[in-house]
Nucleic acid binder design. Structure first.
Lengths: 109, 109
DNA sequence: ACTAACTACTCTGTCTGTCAAAGTAATTTA
DNA sequence: TAAATTACTTTGACAGACAGAGTAGTTAGT
C-alpha cells in the first residue's frame, strides 16, 4: 500500500484524469483506482469527496445527478474546459517532479 | 518552482540521500538542493530543520558539532545503519509511486 | 421473510508535513 | 562600520488526507 503523504498533491490530477476519460461518480472512481493499481493504492471515501469539492470549487469539474442505483442517487462529475487545461499542466508538472526526485533517488541499488 | 504539496513525503529520503553521500549540515544541504535542481526546488529552513528532527528521532541520522564557521557552529549529521536501510526502501517505494501515478498521468500530450 | 453485504454520499474532527515569520549570533565584504 | 551572508531554532498557522460515524436504499444468501 502506498503511503498517503507520498501520493499527497497528486490526487487532484488522478481523479481529474479518470473523469476526463468518462463522466464518473465517486464510488466508481474509488473502485477504478483500486482496480487499476491492483490494490496498491486505495483512496479513502472522505478524501475522495473532499477532492471533488475542491475540484468543483475551482471549476475544474461540474456535477449532475444521474440515475438512482443501489439506493442512493449517483452524483456524476464531468470535466470542464478549464479542467482539461489543468490536467495537461499537471501532467507536465509530474514529469518535472519525477526528474527532480530522481536526481536524488538514483543510483541506490 | 515545484509545489510543496507535490514534494511532500519525499523530503526525508532526499535529505537522507544527501547525508548518505557525505556528512552534512543544514545550510549546506539547502544550498545543495537549490544547486542540483537549478533552483527548481528550494527547501525552506523551517522545513529542513523539522526533517532533521524527525530523522534523528527515528534514529536514521545522528548529529555532532563541527567547526565554528561564519558565526554559528555547524551541526553535522551522519546517516546510521538504520538510515541506510530506510533509504534503500525509500528508493524502492519511489519506483512504485512513479509506476502508480504514471498509470493515471500517461497519454495526455 | 430476514439479515448481511454492498452501493453511494456526507460530515466532523484529528493528525501531520510544510511554511512564514521572527529571533539569535558571529563573520565577511564593501 | 553597515550590510550581507552564514547558521541554527522556535512558534503558530494552514491545508490535505484520514478515521469514524451517519444516512439510506438495494441485492444476495439462507
Amino acid at each position: 500500500m502506498i503511503k498517503s503523504d507520498i501520493i499527497r498533491g497528486h490526487l487532484e490530477p488522478i481523479i481529474l484524469r479518470l473523469i476526463y476519460e468518462n463522466d464518473q461518480y465517486g464510488y466508481e472512481i474509488s473502485k477504478q483506482i483500486s482496480l487499476r493499481t491492483d490494490n496498491r493504492f486505495q483512496i479513502k471515501e472522505a478524501t475522495l469527496y473532499a477532492v471533488f469539492q475542491r475540484l468543483e470549487k475551482k471549476d475544474l469539474i461540474e456535477s449532475y445527478y444521474g440515475s438512482v442505483s443501489h439506493g442512493r442517487k449517483r452524483k456524476y462529475y464531468r470535466i470542464t474546459t478549464l479542467g482539461k487545461a489543468y490536467l495537461k499542466e499537471s501532467a507536465r508538472e509530474w514529469q518535472e517532479t519525477k526528474e527532480i526526485i530522481d536526481l536524488f533517488m538514483e543510483g541506490l541499488e
